[in-house]
Lab assay of single mutants.
Amino acid sequence: MSIQHFRVALIPFFAAFCLPVFAHPETLVKVKDAEDQLGARVGYIELDLNSGKILESFRPEERFPMMSTFKVLLCGAVLSRVDAGQEQLGRRIHYSQNDLVEYSPVTEKHLTDGMTVRELCSAAITMSDNTAANLLLTTIGGPKELTAFLHNMGDHVTRLDRWEPELNEAIPNDERDTTMPAAMATTLRKLLTGELLTLASRQQLIDWMEADKVAGPLLRSALPAGWFIADKSGAGERGSRGIIAALGPDGKPSRIVVIYTTGSQATMDERNRQIAEIGASLIKHW
Rank of each mutant, 00 (worst) to 15 (best):
M1E: 01
M1I: 07
M1K: 01
M1H: 01
S2F: 11
S2H: 15
S2A: 08
I3H: 12
I3G: 05
Q4G: 08
H5C: 09
F6L: 10
R7I: 09
R7G: 11
V8H: 14
V8C: 14
V8T: 15
L10A: 13
L10C: 10
I11W: 12
I11M: 11
P12R: 05
P12Y: 13
F13R: 02
F14R: 01
F17T: 12
F17H: 09
F17W: 10
L19P: 10
P20G: 05
V21K: 06
F22R: 10
F22V: 06
P25T: 11
P25R: 08
P25L: 10
T27Y: 02
T27S: 07
T27C: 08
T27Q: 06
L28P: 05
L28R: 08
K30V: 11
K32P: 01
K32C: 09
D33E: 12
D33T: 15
D33C: 15
A34C: 10
A34F: 09
A34I: 10
A34H: 03
E35T: 03
D36N: 13
Q37S: 13
Q37K: 15
G39Y: 10
G39M: 10
G39Q: 11
G39L: 11
V42H: 02
G43D: 00
Y44L: 11
E46Q: 12
L47G: 03
D48E: 12
D48C: 07
D48Q: 08
L49H: 05
S51E: 13
G52I: 03
K53N: 15
K53D: 10
E56V: 08
E56N: 11
S57N: 09
S57L: 09
F58T: 08
F58W: 14
R59C: 04
R59G: 04
P60H: 13
P60E: 14
P60I: 12
E61R: 13
E61C: 08
R63D: 03
F64D: 00
F64R: 01
F64H: 01
F64V: 04
M66Q: 06
M67T: 11
S68M: 00
F70K: 02
F70Y: 05
F70P: 00
F70W: 08
K71I: 00
V72I: 09
L73Q: 05
L74C: 05
G76C: 06
A77Y: 12
A77C: 14
R81Y: 08
D83E: 10
G85I: 04
Q86A: 14
E87R: 02
E87Y: 05
E87I: 11
E87M: 12
L89M: 11
R92E: 08
I93Y: 06
I93Q: 05
Y95Q: 02
S96W: 12
Q97I: 13
N98M: 11
N98L: 15
D99L: 09
V101S: 10
V101F: 08
E102K: 08
Y103V: 05
Y103P: 07
Y103S: 05
P105F: 05
P105D: 04
P105E: 06
V106P: 01
V106N: 07
V106E: 14
V106A: 10
T107V: 08
T107W: 01
T107P: 01
K109T: 13
H110F: 11
H110C: 08
H110S: 08
T112I: 14
T112L: 15
T112H: 14
D113Q: 12
V117C: 04
R118F: 13
E119T: 06
C121Y: 00
S122Y: 14
S122V: 12
A123P: 00
A123M: 03
A123N: 04
A124N: 04
I125R: 00
T126I: 09
M127P: 01
M127T: 13
D129L: 00
N130Q: 04
A133C: 05
N134A: 04
L135I: 14
L136A: 06
L137S: 06
T138D: 12
T139M: 10
I140L: 10
G142S: 06
K144A: 15
K144T: 13
E145R: 13
E145N: 15
E145M: 13
L146H: 02
L146V: 11
T147V: 11
A148R: 15
A148Q: 14
H151Y: 14
N152F: 11
N152R: 15
M153I: 13
M153N: 10
G154L: 05
G154W: 04
D155I: 01
D155Q: 02
H156F: 10
T158G: 05
R159K: 13
L160S: 11
D161F: 03
D161G: 03
R162M: 06
W163I: 12
P165I: 08
P165D: 06
P165W: 05
E166G: 12
L167V: 13
E169V: 11
E169T: 13
A170W: 11
N173A: 14
R176I: 06
R176F: 08
T179C: 05
T179F: 00
M180D: 10
P181G: 04
P181E: 00
A183C: 08
M184S: 03
A185P: 00
A185S: 08
T186N: 13
T186S: 13
R189F: 12
L192D: 01
L192Q: 04
T193R: 15
L197N: 05
L197V: 06
L197F: 06
L197K: 06
T198A: 11
T198V: 07
L199H: 12
A200C: 13
A200K: 13
S201K: 07
S201L: 06
S201V: 04
R202M: 07
R202W: 03
R202S: 13
R202N: 06
Q203L: 12
Q203A: 12
Q204R: 10
L205I: 10
I206E: 09
D207A: 15
W208C: 03
W208L: 06
W208V: 02
W208I: 03
W208S: 03
M209G: 03
M209L: 08
E210A: 10
E210C: 12
A211P: 04
K213H: 12
K213G: 08
V214W: 05
G216M: 10
L218Y: 03
L218A: 04
L219K: 04
S221D: 09
S221F: 09
S221Y: 10
S221R: 13
A222V: 13
L223R: 05
P224L: 04
A225F: 10
A225D: 14
A225P: 15
G226V: 04
W227C: 02
I229V: 10
A230K: 01
D231N: 05
K232H: 00
S233Y: 01
S233E: 01
S233I: 00
G234I: 00
G236H: 02
G236M: 02
G239F: 02
G239K: 02
S240W: 01
G242E: 01
G242Q: 02
G242L: 00
I243T: 04
I243W: 04
A246T: 11
A246N: 05
L247H: 01
D250N: 15
D250P: 09
D250I: 09
D250W: 10
P253D: 07
P253F: 09
P253S: 09
P253R: 09
S254N: 13
S254L: 10
S254D: 13
R255T: 05
R255M: 05
I256S: 01
V257C: 07
V257I: 11
V257K: 00
T261I: 12
T262S: 11
Q265E: 14
Q265A: 14
T267H: 11
M268G: 07
D269V: 13
R271L: 12
R271A: 11
N272M: 03
N272Q: 05
N272S: 05
R273G: 14
Q274L: 15
Q274S: 10
Q274A: 13
I275Q: 01
E277Y: 08
E277W: 06
I278V: 09
G279L: 04
A280C: 11
S281C: 12
L282M: 14
I283A: 08
K284E: 15
K284D: 14
H285Y: 12
H285M: 09
W286N: 03
W286H: 04
W286R: 02
